[in-house]
Simulated scan of single mutants.
Amino acid sequence: MVRERSQKQSSDKRQKKKRPPTKQQINDKKGTNRSKPTSKATNRNAHPKNKKRKPNPDSKKTKNVTRHKDKNPVYTLLFNIVFYGFILFMIAGSIIFATTKNADKSVLGYRFFGVLTDSMVPRNPEKQKGGFHSGDVIIVKNIAGEAAEVGDIITFRPSIKSQAFLTHRVKKKLDHLGETKGTYYITQGDANLAEDVPVNEKQVVGKKILVIPKIGAFLNFVRENPFVSIIFLISVFGFITIIRYYILNK
C-alpha cells in the first residue's frame, strides 16, 4: 500500500510539472513585459532636468570673442591718452588765451590769436591754402625771424614797437632791402590786392600752424567772464567723459 501511494504522488508531481501554462499566466507575463518600458519612459519624462545638455561650441566661441574684444588694455590706454590729452590741451589753451591780455606770452612755444578781419580769406582756394576767417582762432608757433619761407603764413608786428599783430602770407624773401642787409619779407593777405610794407626779421613773431574755426566769440565771452567760463568748461569736460564711459560700457 505504501508503494502504491508513493507511486501515485510521484505521478501527480510529474503531471503538475508537465502541465502547460494557462491563458491568464500568459497574459500576466505579457502585461509585465509591456509595463517595463512604459515605466522607463515615465522615469525619463519625470526627470528632464537630470539630462546633461551638450555644450554648443559656437556659443563658447562667441563668448570668447566678446571677452577678447572687451579686454584690450593697450588700445584703451592709448585712446584715453589721446582723448583726455586733446580735451585738456584745448581747455587749458582756451583759458590761457582768454584770461591773458599780454599777446607776448606763449605756452610751450605756442601762441593763440583771435582773427579780427577777413584779410586771409582765400580768393583762390586751390592755390591759397591755409586761409582763415574773422572769428577764427589761430595757433602760432614761435620761430626765428629768418626761418620763414615763401608760402608760409607768418604773424608779425607792423612795426617793432607795435602792440598789434598781422598774420599774412609770405610772397617774397629778401636778403637785403635797398642798401640795408638783412632778412626781409614781402607779405600780402590772401583777400588783399596790394602787398604789405616790407617786414624785418625782428618783427616776425611766429608761423601759423593750426586754425580753430568759429570760436572767437566764445573766447571773448570767456575773457569777459573768466570764473563762470572755467566752471562751464569743467562741466563740459565732465559731461563728455560720462558720455564716453556710457558708450564704451553699453
Rank of each mutant, 00 (worst) to 15 (best):
V2C: 06
E4D: 11
E4N: 11
Q7K: 00
S11D: 15
S11K: 13
S11Q: 15
K13D: 01
K13Y: 03
R14C: 06
K18Y: 09
T22Y: 01
N27C: 11
N33H: 10
N33Q: 12
K40S: 04
T42K: 08
N43W: 07
A46R: 15
K49S: 08
N50Q: 13
K52C: 08
P55Y: 08
K61F: 15
T62G: 08
V65S: 10
T66H: 14
R67Q: 15
Y75T: 02
T76V: 07
F79N: 14
N80K: 05
V82C: 08
F83R: 01
Y84S: 05
F86R: 07
I87W: 00
G93I: 13
T99N: 12
A103V: 07
G109R: 06
G109E: 07
Y110F: 10
R111F: 00
F112S: 00
S119C: 09
P125V: 03
K127R: 05
K129P: 02
S134L: 06
G135D: 05
I138K: 04
I139Q: 02
A147H: 06
E149A: 08
D152I: 00
F156M: 05
F156E: 02
S159C: 13
I160S: 14
S162E: 14
L166K: 12
V170D: 00
K172N: 08
E179M: 03
I186Q: 01
D196A: 11
V197F: 06
P198Q: 03
E201F: 06
V204P: 02
K208R: 15
I209H: 04
I212G: 03
K214D: 14
I215A: 10
F221V: 07
V228A: 15
S229K: 00
I230T: 15
I230E: 08
G238R: 06
R244S: 05
R244F: 05
R244H: 08
K250I: 03
